[in-house]
Amino acid sequence: MSAQNMHIDSYERNWMIFSFILLAVFASAIAVAAFGMEIQVPAPEERVDPGTVATDPNSPWSNPGLREIAPGKYDAYILARAVPQWEYLPKEITVPVGSRVTFYVTSPDVQHGFKIQDTNANFMVLPGQVSKLTVTFDKPGAYNFICTEFCGAGHGVMYGAVIVTP
């Protein structure tokens, strides 16, 4: 075997260069959406003890629901659970149109998902972790949030809704 240079057909070389540019363009588009339009994926927020997160009086999820923190700005603490039945607590929250809602979701039992239809809020919910994303609701209507990770027999019926009033 002799050491020789790599021979690459000119068409194929151009194809490789083009592929590289194409992927670079896609990567740039993603970066623009992430850093220019604030469309971001979840970041580590807080770790909790799944054994006590739903019952400890100091835990916001012992009393899940909506808190108004400033005019038009809300924090929504939501518990996703499979025991004793498959549900989100609370099942429904209501906010006026234009509200900016930050969701803090965790699970006291198995893994769940949380996806608010027609928004970019879509994340995993893990016991021991808090998942956080923010959504601004610019149009009135009912936005279902649904469970997107298999969590047992009742997975398919697990959902809730954000009601956005005009």
């Binding site: 490789m16 979840p42 919910v125 972790q129 998942s131």
Partner: peptide
Amino acid sequence: QYVDPGVPPAWKFIHAILTFGVFFPSMM
């Protein structure tokens, strides 16, 4: 794991770029 709560976004982004990298040999 892009939408996992416990992994920092910076590392997710690095893995995204590497995933684009592994698309390259498939283009070849």
